[in-house]
Amino acid sequence: MRLPHFDLHQPSTLEEAFSLMEGGALALAGGTDLIPLMKYGLEVPSTLVSLKRVDCLKSIARRDGGVFIGAMTSLAELASSRIISENFAALFQAARSVAAPPIWNVATVGGNICQDSRCLYYNQSRAWRLEKPACLKAGGNVCHAVPKGKKCFSVYSGDLAPALAALGAMARVEKKGGSRSVSILELFSSNGLRPFTLEKEEIVTGVEIALPAKSTNSSYRKMRARPSVDYPLVSAAACVTRDGGGKIEKMRLVLGAVGPSPALVYGAGRLFEGNTLEEADWEAFSELVGKDVRMVDNLSYPGSYRKEMVPIIAARAVRAACGPGGGEENA
């Protein structure tokens, strides 16, 4: 499979990059998500703007009581950073659970957040797709995963975004003459056809996370077919603050791979507040978590099973966040 033709720009400053993005180009970071999509003919940009030479986007730095992670920071760097491992266990574990180490070397934080949502019937070659009518996400009007479906249930499968969202991170979004700061979840549209709220010419330049209080800890748990390489089938990030007696004061729980965007579990914190892990009402938790997500048969495991796994993986994330250092790495 060959790449279609495109123009490639490699600016070295952000300003240049912003100008180049004006003409309907796509940003190129590590390319580990975008290039396969282009080979499959699912993305056919005429112009790519590579951010590789924009050095100011590659750093992990302490800034104003928080940590700023440049969009072009590689996952390898994230996965070996002490600032990250010591303060943001969930993000550290999420980074280490992405794909496989060789991919970490090229994959970036910005690219990971902005990766397209996935589906077994969509992420296929052009030749494969031509044997069937085009699905909604590919511009057609059927869905192969849900017969008669009118909505796209492609699954956002990024590992970092749920962790960042649980940690309350903000994304810096910039374009020529404009800059805004939005929460991670605000980046997402919940629409499988176009999972992001970003405007075409906007670039995510980085994410900011406030340093956590000493009593706050976090964790990321991911179910996947093979620990060696696979995308999440269900994942959960939990960020928990506890008092000296182990009672939970605050908890944020975000699910990954449950639909076109990461999903914040509303009410999970309230359910556990004032309780230790032992006192918590886990049955209520199981009922609450994942009750609103719709998961269909479009990944390697059936939707019904994945849905059943949501509270289990979420519970493991919460328990791990209450263990030392976010618990052991992904089981």
Binding site: A100, R226, P227, S228, V229, D230, S300
Partner: peptide, 8 residues
């Protein structure tokens, strides 16, 4: 196609 890899 889920063939076992190195970590498996």
């Amino acid at each position: 196609y889920k063939i076992p890899c190195s970590l498996e």
